[in-house]
């Protein structure tokens, strides 16, 4: 099985370039604006889209992404509408890989089998579920792989060489290396430390490795792009969105552009990277 994720990383490899992965929250601040933002991302230079599933209790997220989820929920966002958003996005983009990222409970309540079928039909390519470590693979990972979706696992600084094989065993699409022990939006990791970690993980897998958590600027993105197969930016985009809202937290005429412009700047940073020889 080849997903849009596999195809995209193969193309980027051929082009000798690292991927730029953007994270935004589905339904932030409202469904219509969110769809416009997601549609604008590939044009602005996003190679892969991660779309957050809003959840009331995001235990691994910092204040920015927590607030984004609550904005979306307040305006009536649900998992069902998130899948609808993906379906609408796919109407005019059938190539950009799209990964849903979130927590297990909304999926568990939706029903795992129904969710996987609906996600596949909607055009989702992969899943990143923060609170499902390999120890709980029977819950969603194995069924997702059977349904033809990639299950992208997080590896962290606490994932040592002994544990890496277990973490990588059922991972597909790419590996998401969380560059710091911490929550989203926390301090950035040092690019050299990231380089060593990526090299360590590469000894265990042929999958592309994307690095996230703490990357906020085009310079930082370029630094990471020189060490890894991709860099993920989330909090900075969510903050740009938030800063464009009016006093009541509603979208303004500037909202979509605010996210698109920062995406374009970050994408320039990534494209300026000198990619390390394999």
């Amino acid at each position: 099985m080849t997903t849009r994720i596999d195809t995209r990383f193969a193309e980027l490899k051929k082009a000798g370039r690292s991927a730029f992965v953007t994270y935004v929250m589905a339904g932030d601040p409202d469904l219509a604006t969110s769809l416009d933002i997601v549609k604008a991302l590939p044009k602005a230079g996003a190679d892969v889209i991660e779309l957050g599933i809003p959840f009331t209790d995001p235990m691994a997220d910092g204040p920015s992404i927590q607030a984004a989820g609550l904005r979306a929920l307040k305006n009536g966002m649900t998992l069902k509408k998130t899948l609808g958003l993906v379906r609408d996005f796919r109407k005019d983009d059938n190539v950009t890989p799209l990964v849903l990222m979130g927590y297990y409970n909304p999926i568990y309540i939706y029903g795992v089998d129904k969710f996987l079928a609906d996600a596949k039909t909607a055009g989702v390519d992969g899943l990143i579920i923060v609170d499902l470590p390999p120890e709980e693979d029977d819950e969603l990972c194995i069924p997702a792989l059977k349904a033809g979706l990639n299950f992208i696992r997080l590896a962290t600084p606490t994932t040592d060489d002994k544990r890496l094989p277990a973490v990588l065993a059922n991972t597909s699409g790419f590996v998401y290396y969380v560059s710091i022990a911490g929550i989203t939006g926390a301090a950035a990791a040092d690019a050299n430390a990231v380089g060593e970690a990526v090299a360590r993980i590469k000894r265990h897998t042929k999958l592309p490795i994307c690095v996230g958590f703490g990357i906020r600027t085009p310079e930082a993105a370029r630094g990471i792009a020189e060490k890894a197969d991709g860099s993920v930016v989330g909090t900075a985009l969510v903050d740009a969105l938030k800063n464009s809202l009016d006093a009541e937290g509603r979208a303004t005429a500037k909202t979509v552009n605010a996210v698109a412009e920062l995406t374009a700047a970050l994408a320039q940073g990534v494209k300026g990277a000198k990619v390390a020889a394999e």
Binding site: T158, T159, D160
Partner: peptide
């Protein structure tokens, strides 16, 4: 059901 960072 925890993040990978906490699993070890």
């Amino acid at each position: 059901f925890v993040a990978e960072t906490l699993m070890p």
